[in-house]
C-alpha cells in the first residue's frame, strides 16, 4: 500500500520549508521540492498551507492554490500522487538508448512486473522514466531513489534491485 502523508506532518513540514527558503514567491519551487523529498510526493493539502504563508498583498504577492498546483504539476521530479517506497527513474533519452538502454528497461519491466508509470501493488516500487540525467558517459543509467547506477546491463538488474528492502 502506498502511504499518504498526514495532515500534521504536512503543516509542520511546510512551516520548516517556508522558514528555510523564505516566504517568497520565488521560493515556491524549493519549498515544493522539500515537501516532495520528504513525502515522496506533494500532497494537495500542502498547497493551501504554502499559499497562506506566502500570499502577501501588502507586498504585492498574490498566490492562489491554482498557482501552486500549476507549478507543482509542471515539473517531472514532483509527483502529485503517492509513489512506491522506492522509485526507479530510468533514463530514456537517446544516448542511453543507443548504448543499450532498450534492453535494460525491458529487464526492469520484466523483473518488477510493472509497466512504465506504474506502482507495484505492495507499494514497494514505482517504475518511472526520466529524461537525460547527464551521466551519459556511463550509459545506460537509472536512478533508484537517490542512488545512480551507470554502465548497467540487463544481467545486473536483479542484483541491483535486491539491494532495496
Amino acid at each position: 500500500m502506498v502511504q499518504e502523508a498526514k495532515a500534521l506532518d504536512i503543516v509542520e513540514l511546510v512551516e520548516q520549508a517556508v522558514a528555510k527558503h523564505g516566504a517568497r514567491r520565488d521560493a515556491v519551487i524549493p519549498i515544493l521540492n522539500e515537501i516532495n523529498q520528504a513525502f515522496g510526493y506533494i500532497p494537495t493539502a500542502a498547497l493551501p498551507e504554502i499559499r497562506r504563508r506566502i500570499h502577501a498583498p501588502a507586498e504585492g504577492v498574490f498566490l492562489a492554490d491554482s498557482h501552486l498546483y500549476s507549478a507543482a504539476s509542471f515539473y517531472q521530479l514532483f509527483s502529485l500522487k503517492p509513489l512506491g517506497r522506492h522509485v526507479i527513474r530510468f533514463c530514456e533519452s537517446a544516448p542511453c538508448h543507443v548504448m543499450g538502454g532498450r534492453q535494460v528497461i525491458q529487464a526492469l519491466q520484466n523483473e518488477l512486473g510493472l509497466e512504465i508509470g506504474e506502482t507495484s501493488q505492495d507499494g514497494k516500487w514505482s517504475l518511472l522514466t526520466t529524461s537525460c540525467l547527464g551521466v551519459c558517459g556511463v550509459g545506460p543509467v537509472f536512478l533508484v531513489d537517490d542512488d545512480i547506477y551507470g554502465n548497467v546491463t540487463s544481467d545486473q538488474v536483479p542484483e541491483i534491485l535486491a539491494r532495496y528492502k
Binding site: V135, G137, V138, I148, Y149, G150, N151
Partner: peptide
Amino acid sequence: GSCGIAAG
C-alpha cells in the same frame, strides 16, 4: 563526479 559515482 556523478559519472564516477554512477559507475561505483
